[in-house]
Design a protein around this nucleic acid. Structure first.
Lengths: 117, 117
DNA sequence: CATAGTGTAATATACAACTAGTACACTATG
DNA sequence: CATAGTGTACTAGTTGTATATTACACTATG
């Protein structure tokens, strides 16, 4: 694989987003095992510690459960996933609103732009 | 003044946003002179070099014009401001779309959330 | 033409975030 | 109980950001 990473955001953060996305989209199923930190490090071309940080973040979000010696698994708690999905949606919307307000755009004009794309 | 800065973004970047916003919103008018780097540094409680970086960025965006010995002024080129406003609007929209796509949200469902706020 | 107020530049320092290399600790399995 | 495969922890180096300090270059003004 060896992914491309944008430089304006930490790699670990981009990987968290990617995995979150895969889970929320259903590309990964509840209970699935993620690659080991070493495997995933090789796949993506980053350091083991970076992957560890990714898995740590995911676990802190209660999106995964980590078992030493066994691996990291996507939570089987479906409610938690649903809740996370909703939280993220709200958070995305809120930070978007904050940004546009800071630059003086109205919600309505931005929605128009979005609809045109 | 002595502003509060969020820790998740560089200070210089937050100041750029603030001034951009003030210009785009019309709080600052075309041709207005910004405070001197030293004044603004004291006002905001940051270092002169940080303010200098802010003014440099603004000039690179052609949002201001800097005259050595005189000060930094908001461009009188109204077209440029209009263009910047439009560019930023599109850029905001695009990065929003990229984010929501990465996490598996649809444009439509996000617009609904935005409208409810 | 001296002076004070502009922006600009260079250097050193400090600190935090990020990443990498390496070694350690736990678990399943034959 | 040895071994291979897990996650974890420690240390160090790099980079970006911010600060402090100092000096320089230009402009307006008395």
């Amino acid at each position: 694989m060896t992914l491309d990473f944008s430089r304006d955001k930490p790699i670990y953060s981009q990987l968290v987003d990617r995995i979150c996305g895969d889970i929320l989209k259903g590309n990964l199923s509840l209970g699935d095992r993620l690659p080991s930190v070493r495997e995933y490090a090789v796949e993506t071309g980053v350091n083991v510690n970076t992957v560890q940080r990714v898995y740590k973040e995911l676990e802190a979000m209660q999106m995964t459960e980590t078992k030493r010696g066994q691996g990291t698994f996507i939570t089987t708690n479906e409610e938690r996933i649903i809740q996370l999905r909703d939280d993220m949606k709200k958070q995305l919307a809120q930070s978007f609103l904050t940004s546009i307000e800071a630059l003086g755009f109205s919600k309505e004009e931005m929605i128009l732009v979005l609809q045109q794309k």
